Amino acid sequence: MPELPDVEGFRKVLQSCAQGRVIRHVDVRDAGVLHGVSARRLRDALEGRRITRVERHGKWLLARTGGPTLALHFGMTGLLLCAHPDDAAEPHDRVLFTLARDRQLRYRDQRKLQGLWLADDASDVVRLLADQGPDALTVDREEFETALASHRGRVKAVLIDQSVLAGLGNLLADEILWRARLRPATPANALTGPERRRLYTQMRRTLRPAVTAGRVPPRPTWLTGHRDAPDPHCPRCGTALRRSRVGGRTTVWCPECQGEANGDGKEEGT
């Protein structure tokens, strides 16, 4: 599932492929990824428009034109790529934006759980993102700590709640909590001041290299590099990793580094 680092990578693709260029043609191959806009209206609104600025907020991308704004969300399987217009389209290429003779932006998505929106003006963009919290990459420490202290839910569930903090997903939350040595099921408002500060610091330290890699990298020294192993062990202490359900998501954690289960819910298979 694309998380903040993946979407930041898509932002760079969109910027390098399309920013400053005129959308010459919009080919909607599957209207099932359009939300609140028809294929015809999307074409009429965007063809002939120049993409002037590209932004990301959490898992959302915004392509601004000085008029309508194209908003993209990638769900679980979406991605964005720059191709040549003569390249054969893949079965899951849903919308193609031809920008020049040699440039075509493609929205590709297998499961079609999210897709594309069209915001007519700035107020529409505000309404579209109204339920999003501050971006995890740019949120300051005070705002981050205040958000955690005001929520009683389990800290893992709070971290992946986009209305609290935009951009974090399952892999990032597990990685950050492991680095911060905090149990995923600890109530967010029960964290101490030093724990909240440690969590913020580890979030920043995790996001920087992940954004550079364009993904949550499965490095040997990262939890992410071990979580899918047949017999996963903690890369820090060697303890067998546990799997639980927190916030409806499979959660991987180390009972030694992050403390034994205490209200963590049933482990999978029990």
Rank of each mutant, 00 (worst) to 15 (best):
P5A: 09
E8H: 01
G9P: 09
K12E: 13
R21C: 03
V22L: 08
V22R: 13
R29Q: 05
D30N: 14
A31I: 05
V33M: 04
R41A: 12
R41Q: 14
D44T: 12
E47R: 04
R50D: 01
T52P: 09
R53D: 07
R53M: 03
E55V: 00
L61G: 00
L62S: 00
R64M: 00
G67I: 06
P68V: 03
T69Y: 00
L70N: 03
L70Y: 00
A71T: 02
F74H: 02
T77A: 06
L80Y: 03
A83L: 08
H84F: 00
D86T: 10
A88V: 06
A89E: 06
V95K: 02
V95N: 03
F97D: 03
D102E: 08
D102P: 05
R103H: 10
Y107V: 02
K112G: 03
Q114N: 12
L116N: 02
V126Y: 00
T138A: 11
F144V: 10
T146H: 13
T146P: 04
H151V: 09
R154I: 11
V155I: 15
V155R: 03
V158M: 06
L159H: 04
S163C: 02
A166M: 02
G167F: 01
G169N: 05
N170C: 11
E175T: 13
R179K: 10
R181V: 09
L182V: 07
T186P: 04
L191F: 03
R196F: 10
L199S: 11
Y200D: 10
Y200R: 09
T201D: 15
L207Q: 07
A210N: 15
V211R: 11
T212Y: 11
R215V: 08
V216R: 13
R219T: 15
W222F: 15
G225N: 02
D228K: 14
A229H: 15
A240S: 14
S244L: 14
V246S: 11
G248Y: 12
T250K: 12
V252W: 08
A261R: 10
A261V: 09
D264S: 09
D264K: 07
